[in-house]
Design a protein around this nucleic acid. Structure first.
Length: 255
DNA sequence: ATGGCAGGCTATGCCTGA
């Protein structure tokens, strides 16, 4: 059993890459972010041809999330309940094995102290409360997606340059820790020995070739799931492809 | 070195991303 998270930066453009990833890895569940696709235009038939079910929540131009799954999921939920938001950033569903899967695309925040940063922090606080209430109902949970937070110094190519900058500020990192404190493990951080930890590289400045990246895509899981988790891998080869997403997929494999 | 690169839009430059 395996599960993937991938910010595809346009599902339309990246569809061939998705097909390759499915051919290579055949994950049981794929969580996509930044589909940038309205629900009416979601390529459902193409996804079904690849033998996946799809639960999707999108909008024009920006954001958009989807859960693709080999088995039918249930209790599908869009957005954060009771949190007013016109941006499509969350889809949650329960897998055939009873695990609650929460696919998230956290706001970027633009710059520390910008209006969007304030939105990011309030958004994340609402998300924490949502996860807190989810944890009362489900004992087995995986939260995965683009968190737009690099939790630790080692998750950034130049920690000093990024000190208190967007994605690395104390306020963002404290909220990330608060989320973990609800009973989640940062699976990549806990499971890997590799020093290659980045999941995102800027399109500009030859950042990928120069290994100038960040780790902002995460797979968090409750202890029950973590104990079954054998490996978490960053599929860097997809960042090397022609016309790549700026994010690499991250895959967790379970026993 | 605050630029650069990519995607979408009813576009032909501007917004957003991180």
């Amino acid at each position: 059993m395996s599960i993937v998270t991938w910010n595809v930066n346009s599902l339309k453009v990246r569809f061939p890459h998705l097909e390759t990833m499915i051919k290579d890895c055949s994950p049981d569940v794929i969580c996509l972010q930044e589909t940038k696709t309205e629900d009416a235009n979601f390529p459902l038939a193409d996804i079904e041809n690849l033998d996946y079910f799809a639960s999707y929540h999108g909008q024009k131009t920006y954001n958009g999330v989807a859960i693709l799954s080999r088995e039918r999921v249930h209790e599908v939920q869009f957005g954060i309940p009771n949190f007013e938001d016109n941006q499509a950033r969350v889809v949650a569903a329960t897998s055939s094995t009873g695990t609650r899967i929460i696919n998230v695309y956290v706001p970027n925040g633009e710059a520390v102290d910008s209006e969007k940063y304030v939105y990011k922090l309030s958004w994340f606080r609402a998300f924490i409360e949502y996860v807190r209430s989810t944890a009362k109902t489900y004992s087995s949970i995986i939260i995965l997606g683009d968190f737009n937070i690099a939790p630790r110094g080692e998750d950034v190519y130049d920690p000093e340059a990024f000190h208190e900058k967007l994605l690395c500020s104390d306020q963002e990192r404290t909220l990330f820790e608060e989320l973990l404190g609800l009973g989640f493990l940062d699976a990549f951080h806990e499971r890997t020995e590799s020093s290659e930890r980045f999941t995102w590289w800027d399109y500009r400045m030859n950042a990928f070739r120069r290994k100038l990246g960040l780790r902002i895509d995460h797979i968090l899981m409750t202890e029950s799931e973590f104990n079954r988790c054998a490996e978490v891998k960053i599929l860097k080869e997809f960042r090397k492809m022609e016309r790549p997403s700026d994010h690499a997929p991250v895959m967790a494999t379970f026993i």
